[in-house]
Amino acid sequence: MVKKKPPEELSYEEAFQELEALVARLESGELPLEEALGLFERGQALAARCNQLLEEAELKLKQLTIETDEGEHAA
C-alpha cells in the first residue's frame, strides 16, 4: 500500500474523501482483520482531523493589489 500522509498534513477535503473511501472499503467486508483494524484506526484519525479543522476553521482573508492596464491601482 502507498505510504499515506499523516492526517495532520491533510486538508479537510483530502481527509474527508479518504475517510469516505476507507469506510466504503471497510463496509465491503472481506478484509483481513489486521487490515480492517488498520483502516479503522486510520479512519478515526481522519475523522478527528476533519473535526479539528472544522472546529478551528476561521475564514482567512487576504487582499490583492490590483494593477490596472493604465498602471493605476484600484481600491
Binding site: 479537510y12 479543522l53 472544522l54 476553521a57 476561521e58 475564514l59 482567512k60 482573508l61 487576504k62 487582499q63 490583492l64 490590483i66 494593477e67 490596472t68 492596464d69 493604465e70 493605476e72 484600484a74 481600491a75
Partner: peptide, 27 residues
Amino acid sequence: PLAEVILAPTPVQGEEAPAGIVAALET
C-alpha cells in the same frame, strides 16, 4: 469557514469600474 478568501478590490461603479473589474478578474 474552511475557505480562504482572496479579495481583489476594485471600484464597482463609475467610469473606472469596468477596467478595475477586468483587472481584478485577471489578477
